[in-house]
Amino acid sequence: MTKTRVYVIGVGMTKFEKPGRRADVCYPDFAKEAITKALQDANIKYEEVQQAVTGYVYGDSTCGQRGHILHPYWPIISIMYQQYFDRANPMERHITEMSELTEIGPGPMAAQIFGNAGKEHMKKYGTKPEHFGKIAWKNHKHSVNNPYSQFRDEYTLEQIMKSPQVVEGVLTKLQCCPTSDGSGAAILASEQFVRRHGLEKQAVEIVGMEMASDPASTFADKSLMKIAGYDMTALATQRLFAKSGYKPQDVQVVELHDCFSANELVTYEALGLCGEGKAGEFIDRGDNTYGGKFVVNPSGGLISKGHPLGATGLAQCAELCWQLRGLAEKRQVTGAKLALQHNLGLGGAVVVALYRLGFPGAANAKL
C-alpha cells in the first residue's frame, strides 16, 4: 500500500494557567484561542476543516462540542475523561501490585507511583536524589524563555532540593507538575492539501506514531518502574523506530511526559536516549539540555509549563513544530531536524511520535 503522508500545518495554544485564576475565562474561551491561533498559523479558514476531534478532562459529555468554534460546520468527535467513584478504578491493579512491593505512604497516589519508580532506579543503579533535582532545575530554567509556561521562575538546585517533600527521599514540590488549565490545537492535512495551499515550507510531517498499553510484564516482573509505565513506553518506542527507520540518536529535540522528575529520568532509558541504568550519567553530562546530545523539554515540560491533562499532548506537538520550523525564539534548539514526543497515562496508555520538517521535493527538506 502507498504510504499516506500526514502533516501538521498549523498549531496554537494558550498560556497555561492555574485553574480559576481568570474568573472571566471558561474552557470554550481557551479552546477558541488555541484553535484560532492554529487556523491563523496554517492560513486557512475554519470552513475548510472537514472533521474535528477534541480531548478534555473533567468535563461533561459534550464539552467538546460546546468548546469547539468549528461547530456546526463539521462533525466533532469528543474524547473525554470524567472521574467517578462508584466503579472500578483503572489503576486498581497497579496500586495493588505496588503495595505488595513497597509501603504506600501519605501523599498523592500518582506522585507515589512515579516516586517509587525513582526509588527503584536509585536502588538498582545508584542514582542519587540530586539527579531528579537536576531534571527539575533544567525544566524550570527552560521555562524562563517560554511565554506559554504557567511558571517562568528559575531556581537553584538547592532551592529545588529544599522545597517541601512530596515523596520522601525522591520528590519535592518543585519536581512535580502543577494543576493547570489551558488548551492546545493542531491542524492536520494531507499531502494534496499542503500542495494546493502552498504550505510546503511550514508543513511538519508526522513520520510515525505508536501507541501501547500495559504489557504482561507490567505486573509479572514485580518492578515499580514497570508499574509506572516503563515497558509500555519502551514497547511503543521500539515499534516507532523500527517502522520509521530512524534511531534515538537521530533525534535532536524531545518533549516527554515529565509529570514528575522521576518519570523523566526513567523515560530517558525507555526511549533509548541513554542505556539502561545510565540516566544518572546522562544527566551529569548535560546530555538532556542545550549543548548536549538532546534538548529534553525545551518548553519547560509539565513540571514548569503546566499539565492541563487534555491539552498536554497538543502543547508538546506545538512546541516541537515550532522547534522544527525555527520559531522557538530564545529556546530554539540549533539544528533541530527530527523531534520525538512522548505522552503517557497510567492505567495505561502511552503514545510516542516522530516529527520532521520537510516536504517531498521541497527546497526546505532537512532529512
Score class of each variant (00 low, 15 high):
276 E>L: 15
271 L>K: 08
259 C>N: 08
265 L>T: 08
280 G>L: 05
277 G>W: 04
261 S>E: 06
268 Y>R: 13
287 D>T: 13
268 Y>H: 14
275 G>K: 14
255 E>I: 10
278 K>G: 09
273 L>H: 04
257 H>K: 07
276 E>Y: 09
265 L>R: 01
257 H>V: 02
275 G>A: 13
273 L>K: 08
257 H>W: 10
286 G>R: 08
279 A>P: 03
277 G>Y: 09
264 E>R: 06
284 D>Y: 09
287 D>G: 09
287 D>K: 13
263 N>H: 15
282 F>R: 02
285 R>S: 14
287 D>P: 13
254 V>L: 02
278 K>Q: 14
280 G>C: 01
269 E>Q: 07
273 L>V: 08
283 I>E: 00
285 R>L: 13
281 E>P: 14
277 G>K: 00
283 I>H: 05
266 V>S: 15
277 G>M: 01
280 G>V: 07
276 E>F: 03
260 F>W: 13
280 G>S: 10
269 E>G: 01
263 N>D: 14
262 A>H: 05
266 V>D: 13
275 G>P: 00
271 L>Y: 06
277 G>H: 01
282 F>W: 06
265 L>W: 06
261 S>W: 06
262 A>G: 00
264 E>I: 05
265 L>P: 02
280 G>E: 12
267 T>R: 04
252 Q>K: 02
280 G>A: 11
278 K>L: 10
285 R>T: 13
287 D>M: 12
272 G>Q: 12
256 L>D: 08
285 R>A: 15
264 E>W: 03
277 G>V: 06
270 A>F: 10
259 C>Q: 08
266 V>W: 01
268 Y>E: 12
278 K>S: 11
261 S>L: 03
267 T>M: 04
253 V>Q: 04
263 N>L: 14
275 G>M: 06
269 E>P: 00
253 V>A: 03
272 G>C: 12
274 C>W: 07
267 T>N: 14
266 V>M: 15
279 A>M: 07
287 D>C: 11
285 R>K: 15
273 L>Y: 09
275 G>D: 09
275 G>V: 11
264 E>A: 12
266 V>P: 04
265 L>Q: 00
280 G>W: 09
280 G>Y: 08
274 C>P: 09
279 A>G: 11
256 L>M: 15
264 E>N: 09
253 V>D: 11
259 C>A: 15
255 E>R: 04
253 V>K: 00
279 A>Q: 10
284 D>N: 14
272 G>F: 10
254 V>T: 01
287 D>A: 08
268 Y>T: 12
252 Q>L: 00
287 D>Q: 10
266 V>I: 15
283 I>Y: 02
272 G>T: 15
258 D>T: 00
273 L>P: 12
286 G>T: 14
